[in-house]
Design a binder for these strands. Structure first.
Lengths: 151, 151
DNA sequence: GGTATATTGTTGCATATGCAACGAATTGCG
DNA sequence: CGCAATTCGTTGCATATGCAACAATATACC
C-alpha cells in the first residue's frame, strides 16, 4: 500500500523558460519574504506593517488627509477609512477637522503612535535585514533595480 | 489657499540604504506585478490565479489529495477545503473517495476544468510575459536567481 | 450667484479569511 | 489487540475586504 509521497518537494523546481522562472520566483518568494517579516512582528505582539506605514508617513510628512494616505499606500479609500478607525480606537492616531476642506479630515499621529512606530522599527528593521541577509550588498541593489524596472 | 499636493509622487523615491531599497522594491513592485496579471484575468472574465494553480497541479500530477494541494500551494488546509468547494460548485473539479484513506478525498479535474485551465493560460501566459517584458532575458534570469536565494 | 459635476470619506451588504474546535479515520506503541 | 496520539478535512465564529451607494462638501462653468 504505497502512499502518496508525504511531502511535495520543498525545493520548488523552477521552470526552464526564463519568464516563467522569474514569474514563479516573484509569485512564491516575494510574498514569502513579506510574510516572514510580518510573522516577526506578530510574534512580538506588534501590529501589521500597514500600521507602521501609516505612522511612518505621518511622522515624516506631518498630518495627512486620508486621501493622501490612500494614494501614498496604494490602497482604496475605504480601506484607509477603516484602518484609521482601528488605529484611532487604539489611540495611535487622531482625526481632526480639516480647515481647508469641510469634507476631509486631517490624520494626526499621537505620541503613543510615534512611540509604537519606534518600537516596531526595532523589530521590523532587524527582520528586514535578516530576510535580505542571503544577498550581498551588490546583489541587494541589483534586486532593487530589477524590480524597479517592472514598476 | 494652497492645497496639499494633489498626488504623492507616483515615482516612489527609493531609500539609499541598500537593504531598505530592496525591501521597498519587494514590498511595492512584487505585489503590483501580481496584481497586474490578476487584473488581466478578471478583465477577461476569468477566475483568479489560485484556480489556475489547482487545475494545473491536477493536470500535471493527476488526482491529488487536498493535503497535497495545500502543501503544494503553500496555503492552509481550510483554505483548500473552501477553494475546492467553490470549484466543485462550478463543476471544475470533483471530490471522490480515497481508497487508501477513509478520511481523505481525491480531487479530480473535470473536462470543464481542464478546458478552463487552457483558456486561462492564453491570458495568463501573455500577461506574465508582458509584465516581465521590461527585463532582458539575462535580467529575467538574474531576478529569478536573486529571489530564489531568499527562499 | 446658481446649478451641474466631481471629490471625500463612510457604511450596508455580500463574500472571503484566520483561528480554534470538531468528528472521523489512521498511526504508533505497549 | 487496545488505547493514546496524530492527521485529514470541515465548520462556526469573529473579523477583514471589495463593491456600490450615500451624504456632505467642493469645484467648474455659465
Amino acid at each position: 500500500m504505497q502512499m502518496q509521497q508525504k511531502q511535495v518537494p520543498k525545493t520548488l523546481v523552477l521552470p526552464k523558460d526564463p519568464v516563467q522562472r522569474a514569474w514563479v520566483a516573484v509569485q512564491r518568494f516575494g510574498p514569502a519574504l513579506l510574510e516572514r517579516v510580518e510573522a516577526r512582528l506578530r510574534a512580538a505582539g506588534l501590529p501589521a506593517l500597514e500600521w507602521y506605514d501609516v505612522l511612518w508617513a505621518l511622522e515624516r510628512e506631518g498630518p495627512l488627509r486620508q486621501r493622501d494616505l490612500a494614494d501614498h499606500m496604494l490602497v482604496a479609500r475605504y480601506s484607509i477609512s477603516r484602518l484609521i478607525d482601528r488605529m484611532e480606537a487604539d489611540n495611535l492616531v487622531e482625526r481632526r477637522e480639516c480647515p481647508q476642506d469641510g469634507r476631509g479630515q486631517m490624520v494626526h499621529a499621537t505620541p503613543a503612535g510615534l512611540k509604537l512606530r519606534e518600537t516596531m522599527w526595532a523589530v521590523y528593521g532587524k527582520a528586514m535585514r535578516e530576510a535580505l541577509a542571503p544577498l550581498s550588498e551588490k546583489e541587494t541593489l541589483q534586486l532593487a533595480a530589477l524590480l524597479s524596472k517592472l514598476a
